[in-house]
Structure formats: structure tokens, C-alpha cells
Design a protein around this nucleic acid. Sequence first.
DNA 1: TTAACCATGTAAAAAGTTACATGATTGT
DNA 2: ACAATCATGTAACTTTTTACATGGTTAA
Lengths: 178, 178
Amino acid sequence: MELNDVILGFLDWKQMTGYELKGLFEKMDFLPWSGNNNQIYKSLIELEKEGLVEKEVVQQESYPAQKRYRATEAGSKRLNAAVKTLPEETSIRNDFLLHLMWSNILAKDELLSLIAAYQSKVETLLAMSREKTRRKPVLPERTEREAYIFGMILQNEADMLQNELNFLVKLRNGLSNK
Amino acid sequence: MELNDVILGFLDWKQMTGYELKGLFEKMDFLPWSGNNNQIYKSLIELEKEGLVEKEVVQQESYPAQKRYRATEAGSKRLNAAVKTLPEETSIRNDFLLHLMWSNILAKDELLSLIAAYQSKVETLLAMSREKTRRKPVLPERTEREAYIFGMILQNEADMLQNELNFLVKLRNGLSNK
DNA sequence: TTAACCATGTAAAAAGTTACATGATTGT
DNA sequence: ACAATCATGTAACTTTTTACATGGTTAA
């Protein structure tokens, strides 16, 4: 699933502008293409050219005109096909492991404080993740099943972080006598 | 830690060629810059220009000449500094979650078979990961501590996959009555 | 004879991030 | 006054992946 497919999913859920999409991408950390993501505007133009979305221009008094997009029939079909493909394997980029890899040049106390520093970073991220799950954003909840699924997706991030913490604890314990 | 720093780590461990480095990057899945990675040659030239590595050209009868690199004093220093920086947060790219996100358009049996298909993929990856850990490649084991650390790094991949499997099982259980 | 290995590199394309650019409005 | 929000886009840059390019050797 690439960026365009995910956008298609949102626009199949409800009509919205590029600006609103940007906000959603920012909030949902499990989506790649985060940060200051203006490729969305380019994608929308592309999707429209392919006939997968259609737009409606809404003039406003005080703000610039909105371009409100929604998925077309063809867009829904394309989304359906994309969802059914076999998901790619999860790719993880763990910078901590790269540090650990060459940590032999560190003294023991330096190594332990590196681990401690990273661990507290992960703990902070976990707390933030839980907080975000608690006051969850507006999510598609068209059915009970969908509501459950989005709950699980939000949960997943915390699971991963907890797993990382477990690893760090194991690591420290193993290091204590070395 | 960027590509050049990781290369520096290898060359601080022992002298080797770009070709050998390529092989190691391919084997170690926790390293980004995998696959057919020829940027290594460019990096080596760059590192040499910066005086962080030095090369020795070894002529061979039947094969092309080898350029054997090793880290310089300055290279070791740079590596040391890089290792001490606070590691970046782990970034995960989970394509399965993107599928799940818009799986509302699937019938229940379609959803379950999507999950099953992905699960068996993860199971295969886990088996492969364990197999790789069993007959581990030549790793730096300059000290007992380093040997332990590389063991843990290899372990980490399996941990992550197992965690993903646990998530999938939880998901299926939760879906059974929806 | 075909694939894998040894050994080096260049080039192009794709994907992703960051910065630039504009400009009114609303809340602290 | 300053930051954040609303709203759209372009441009440049960095990173990563894929393909091209060469050419001998060794093992199944």
C-alpha cells in the first residue's frame, strides 16, 4: 500500500480537503509520510487525473477556497484491490541497535548510561502513545468491527514500544555480570 | 548513526574490502542499507577523502585487485563520538496496519484470510530469523561483552517478529465475535 | 552450461524530508 | 505581539533502491 492508496481510504471514508488529510497523517503515527507532508497535494492532483477521486471547490468568505475531495467508484475499487494484496513485511529501523553494535569501544559505565538514556526516551514515547490512545482522534467507526480494528491499530504502537522496553531490560540484566 | 558510521565500525574491527562489507550488510538484517548496496563503494571513497579510513591495494593473479580498507585513528574517534550520541527513536513501517486500516470494505472471511496469509508470512520470517541466529555469521567478538551484545542484537529481530505474531493472535481472537 | 562468486564501480529512478512561498484569522 | 490555525502549493535536497556495466573463476 502506497501513499495514494491510504489517501484513497480516507476519501472513501469521507469527503475532505488536503489540509484535513495532512492533519490526520500527522496524528496517526503508524502512517509513514508523516511530518510536514505536502506531497499530499501532489497525490490528490494525481488521483484526480486518474479518476480515482473527484473534487468540489467550496468558496469561503475569510479563508482560501477549499478543494474537497472524495473517492469515486473507480477509487473504491482500486482501494479494495490494494487492501487485498499480501502485506509487505514490517521493516524496522532501530538506530539503537547500530549504537549497540559498536559499543565495544565504550567503557562499561558509558554503555550503561547510553542504554539508560535510550530507555528513558522509549519510556517517554510509550507514555505519549498511551496518552494519544486515551484521547483518540476522530476515527472511522462505520461498524463495530472497524471501531475494534482502529483500537487495535492504536494499541499496536504501544505494544511495540513495550516490547522494546522488555528488550532493554533483558539487555541490562545480561550485562550486569560482564 | 548513518551508513558511514556503521562502515567505520566494521573497519575499526578489521580490515576489509567493499565487497566483504556488502556481504555483511546483506547478512545482517537489522542494518538498513540492505539489498544490492553499492553506495558502500561511494562511502569508502568519501571516508578516505576525509581521512577516516586508509586503503591498501592488494594485487591478485586471477581476480581484480582488492582495495582493503581499515579505520584510521581519526576514524576511531569519529566512531566513538557517533556511538555516544542519543539513538534516534525506532521507526517502524508496518504495511499490514495500512491494510487493516481500510479492511472495513472486506467481508469477514476475506479479512480473516488476509490476516492468516500475513501471519504465515511472519511465521516464515521468524523461522528464518531463528535459523540465521543458530548458525550465526562471523561476528566481532573481541570481548565477552561484545559476543553477548551481538547475540542480543540477533535475538532482537526474533523478539520483534514474535511480538508481531502475538498481536495477530490477539487481533483474531478479538475479531471472532464481530 | 549455468549459476554463484569474486571485485569494482556508475547512473538513474523513486521515495521521503525540509524549506520556501503566500496571506488572512483566531486565540493567548 | 506572537503563535497557531486555515488553506494551498512549489522547489530543493537527501536518502534509498534498482538497474546498468564489466569480466574472470569456480563449483554443481
